[in-house]
Design a protein around this nucleic acid. Structure first.
Lengths: 348, 348
DNA sequence: CCTGCGACTGTGAACGTTCACAGAAACGAA
DNA sequence: TTCGTTTCTGTGAACGTTCACAGTCGCAGG
């Protein structure tokens, strides 16, 4: 609980009045700097009265230890690096947010490095940059195959955990269970009586996209439903719009779209050509972006708890940091189907 | 250009092989650490041959200066702090991204601090946290009145610049010109022959919302159009949906909505009640989120160049950093009207 | 009265840099 | 030869902490 100080009003141009350091506190309290340090780390062997004097001096001078100096001597900075690809997308942005808040609670600082392009070199460079900056651990939020691939080539000088990295064991991973999410979306449509379910997938190099494809396929197989050809998009609304053009030429009555943006584009096309949703075609999305409830019609979708993903990442990282040994684990966060009005019973 | 090194494959559990430090380089090159330091800062007075030897040693040992040590001794960390409120929103997320990339180009690291709640105490605490962490400057991306208000109470130990802070002079500000954006949206509708334009505003405590209201009002006045009552939302699609309910009870033929999400909700309601857009009601949004082009109908909106905002912030901050004196300036980024299909000539 | 021990406190060095200065070569000029 | 310059290079201290150790003090036991 950092106390908020009363904000000395100063004229312009006067930055950086020298802050109190440990020796200042020591002098004021009439002890050595070491004793101050001991009080700070509440070491048991400081006499009660001494501790109180030191504490008073700290208060009086508004002393706060210099984290840079601490980092230099301990080799630990209490800071984490996050490398991410496009934090403008809802998923990565939410994960980053969850992570930052979890880190804050654990008193860790967060530094970011965003990638302009995604490939081995950029990922390695970004991690390297963060490590040199002195972070204690790195989280890579880059759910593309290329990122995971790149992770294998990141020198392991510091613990690394990946987010949404698919089934790869080279690094600990935290992910939403895309497979089960896709399966439940598919199952929902099947249970509404649709003979089968089409799928508009995300780009092949995105592991989440592939996991969703797998979940969809597995569920169809389990239900012995025919497997329609796969349609591909690139996550954008535009690509959903285009997928819809192909879709309306088929006898599809239900489609599971790999994210909400594409579902939006698809809905848009359906509307343009007068195909009523959900009467003639049921649509399920994925992500549950805040706008999904206001699509036309409100979108049935699969919600991912990104904040939880952030928290789990931190937990994994901290775990590694403490025992100084990498934990090859996977943490899976369960997604949740949110039924709205874009899905209905199959037409007959 | 950080060279990417070949990634030594190491077994699990072996973090942190000691990295080379300056004395290692010095020893290998047969010079003193000071000479190495000089080469690093390319000081003119190092003999050519010595420089080459040092450079070779640096290369050989893959030496990189330790930024923590540098920060300790120079008092500068080449890092920036960004405090932001909700980076899940498109605007803040894009600004953050632009900022990070600009910082990266200037070889500055970026640390983030996100606020869970927005008030004086949280803003002050966040800035304070970043400063203690050792950042050289802080950017506050929190376009609410409370944030700006809070900024006045932030101890000025370090340069601070605000994003979208409205017309307040206590701190340098970078902002998109909301006023002119709103004016051009309004003008567009007026030029289509609408008698007047309604407005669904954002929350009162958001300065951008107020600026947009002002721009809208000014344009109506300039055109001597009647001023309809103001409708308020909270940026969410839900609130746009609710505003629409009030709107359809009026004779409005054109509405300027303060952001795209609310416009989406509004569009949704209009559709539900069978009010055709744009035939009976023209709608303009604000932001141009990536999905806007896929709304039903594709949304006419005002695009904000957030990346540019990020770049300008950095420039301002760096300026202050160099001349050690705060610059009370405002940098205004021009927005751009993007006409799509949600606007049409007034019905007659 | 000394010794030993626990409780507490202080000192010196280290972390990896930069800064301010001092020192050594090299070289031409007196 | 000696000196003064110029050019280059090295030394010591500092930044603000922590770590490992070495005190000092009071008091009980022999």
């Amino acid at each position: 609980m950092a106390r908020v100080k009363p904000a000395p009003r100063r004229g312009p141009g006067q930055f950086r009045r020298r802050a109190a350091v440990m020796t200042d506190v020591a002098r004021l309290a009439g002890v050595s700097y070491q004793t101050v340090s001991r009080v700070l780390h509440d070491s048991p062997d400081v006499k009660r009265s001494t501790r109180d004097r030191v504490l008073a001096a700290i208060q009086r001078l508004d002393y706060r230890p210099n984290p840079v100096a601490q980092a230099l001597v301990t080799g630990r900075s209490r800071s984490l690096g996050v490398v991410s690809f496009d934090t403008t997308l809802y998923g990565p942005a939410s994960t980053l947010l969850g992570l930052e808040q979890a880190a804050h609670d654990a008193e860790y600082a967060v530094a970011i490095a965003s990638l302009r392009a995604l490939n081995r070199a950029t990922v390695v460079e970004a991690v390297d940059r963060l490590v040199r900056q002195g972070v204690d651990g790195v989280v890579v939020v880059a759910p593309q195959r290329a990122a995971v691939e790149a992770l294998r080539h990141v020198p392991q000088v510091v613990p690394v955990v990946a987010v949404e990295a698919g089934p790869d064991d080279s690094v600990p991973v935290v992910a939403v269970d895309q497979f089960s999410g896709a399966a439940s979306a598919t199952r929902h449509l099947l249970e509404l009586g649709h003979r089968t379910v089409w799928h508009v997938a995300g780009p092949e190099d995105w592991l989440e996209a592939e996991q969703r494809v797998a979940g969809w396929k597995a569920e169809l197989q389990a239900a012995k439903a025919p497997l329609p050809p796969l349609l591909r998009g690139d996550w954008s609304a535009r690509s959903g719009y285009e997928a819809a053009q192909r879709l309306v030429a088929t006898d599809a009555t239900a489609v599971f779209v790999a994210n909400d943006q594409m579902a939006l584009g698809l809905l848009r096309y359906l509307y343009e050509v007068g195909r009523e949703t959900p009467r003639t075609l049921s649509v399920v999305g994925f992500d549950d972006i805040p706008e999904a409830a206001y699509f036309t019609p409100p979108l049935t979708t699969v919600r991912q708890d990104f904040a939880e993903v952030g928290r789990r990442c931190l937990r994994l990282l901290l775990g590694q940091l403490e025992r100084r040994t990498p934990a090859y684990q996977r943490a899976l966060v369960a997604p949740e189907l949110v039924v709205r009005r874009s899905t209905a019973a199959a037409p007959r």
